[in-house]
Amino acid sequence: MSEHYARPVAGHVPVLRLGDVLLVTLQGDLHDGMASQLQQDLAETIAASRVTGVVIDISGVEIVDSFLGRVLAETAAQTELLAARTVVAGMRPAVAITLVELGLTFPELRTALNTEAALALLAQPVVANRPDGEGRP
C-alpha cells in the first residue's frame, strides 16, 4: 500500500492536436498554477493555429473546485472569442454532483460524456449544438 503523496508536477499540461481539434487530457490533481498555465497555453495555440475546437477530457480528474471550474469556463469562453468551440468531456458523477451542490452549474459550458462524443459534437455544424436551444448573448 503506497501512502506517499504524489507530488504534483509543476509545468505544462500536454496539448495534443488532432486535425482541427486540440485534445487536452487532465489527470489527477491539477494545482492552480498549472490550470492557469493551461488556459494561457490554449489561447496561444488557438490563436497561432487554425483549430476549430478544443476537447478537455476531465475523466481522470477526481475533484473540480471553484478555481478549476472557473478555469474551464473561462477557457471555453475564451476559445469562443477565437472562433473555436470547447467541449468538456467525461466529468465524473461525484464531481458533477459536488459542483452543482457548490452552486456551479456552468450553463454556458458545452459538455459530452466522453472524448468520442465530444469530437462528434464538434463535427456538427455550429448552430445545432446549443445545449438549451438559446443563443449566446
Binding site: G90, L99, T111, A112, L113, P131
Partner: peptide, 9 residues
C-alpha cells in the same frame, strides 16, 4: 444540472 455537466440531457 449534474447530468448536463456530465454531457447528458
Amino acid at each position: 444540472a449534474a447530468a448536463r455537466l456530465m454531457g447528458a440531457e
